[in-house]
């Protein structure tokens, strides 16, 4: 039932071993957190899973259906191919299409599923209008879920920070992923917004039948919603377990959490 199976992937930049023998198996429908101190290699793992970097060792297997074992290797594929297979992501430093409208941001993510080609677009065939109507409607539905549908004509850069984060998730969902990678979704949000985001993340997981892997520094969020947590330090996995196991793990406390952490929710 694995959706993703990363088998001891490593990457070396020059002489620096950024990530060493990282293993990760994601079961269908799981919500897993990836934590660790700054520079531990969390985003590098994301970049390897999404094809931005090619791992120098190991293999990444993906299984869109989520049934049986993951078999399709995605190592060597380009990011856009991996997205088309069903892995979508958001970015640590928000990467929206800033000067485009909120609606267009989402509609762009529908692009690879659109059935008409450029010529049919130029000639404005009936298929063009049909498809445009359908993706516009789907985009609006997504915006509604994130409660930003009232701002569909605003430029993405004019949204408040929290809504930009939400828009990025909405845009990632528009690619119809099976696996969603969220890179610090709560960064820059206030406690109330973080709290709402927690519910939203669990909600979309159920609604879109997703498997979610997220990087986050906000322990209330991580401990609150993740079913399993992987802890990275200096490119190596130092612990894997449930939130309560992780929060008591002496290695994790030493490397990352510090003494006297509260487990949040």
């Amino acid at each position: 039932m694995a959706v993703l199976d990363a088998k001891s992937i490593s990457i070396v930049f020059g002489g620096l071993k950024a990530v060493t023998n990282f293993d990760l198996k994601l079961e269908k429908g799981e919500l897993v957190g990836l934590i660790g101190p700054n520079g531990a290699g969390k985003t590098t793992v994301f970049n390897m899973l999404t094809g931005v970097y090619n791992p120098t060792g190991g293999d990444i297997l993906f299984n869109k259906a989520g049934e049986g074992a993951a078999t399709k290797s995605i190592v060597g594929l380009k990011p856009f191919q991996i997205t088309q297979l069903g892995i979508a992501r958001t970015f640590q430093n928000i990467r929206l299409f800033k000067d485009l409208s909120v609606l267009d941001n989402v509609r762009i993510a529908f692009h690879f599923g659109v059935k008409y080609n450029a010529l049919q677009g130029i000639l404005r065939t009936p298929l063009f209008f049909k498809e445009e109507e359908s993706i516009t409607e789907k985009a609006r539905d997504l915006l509604k879920i994130f409660n930003i549908h009232g701002k569909e004509n605003e430029l993405a850069k004019n949204l408040p920070y929290g809504e930009q984060r939400k828009l990025e998730i909405a845009r990632a969902l528009a690619t119809n992923p099976k696996l969603l990678l969220l890179d610090e979704p709560a960064a820059g949000m206030n406690p109330q917004e973080t709290h709402d985001l927690m519910h939203l993340i669990s909600f979309i997981r159920d609604k879109f039948d997703l498997t979610i892997l997220l990087i986050e520094h906000d322990m209330s969020l991580v401990m609150g919603i993740c079913e399993r947590i992987v802890v990275l330090d200096y490119g190596q996995t130092i612990a894997v377990g449930t939130p309560s196991q992780i929060s008591k793990d002496p290695k994790v406390i030493k490397a990352y959490l510090g003494e006297g952490v509260e487990t949040g929710a």
């Binding site: 931005v52 856009f80 990467r95 299409f97 800033k98 267009d104 659109v114 450029a118 677009g121 063009f128």
Partner: peptide, 24 residues
């Protein structure tokens, strides 16, 4: 059109465009 939006998204942010499934 949708291919046109794909083209504009390259101007806006090539990396994001790539990870939205657009063959940059």
């Amino acid at each position: 059109s949708s291919p046109g939006r794909a083209i504009i998204s390259i101007r806006e942010d090539e990396i994001a465009s790539n990870s939205m499934g657009i063959n940059v």
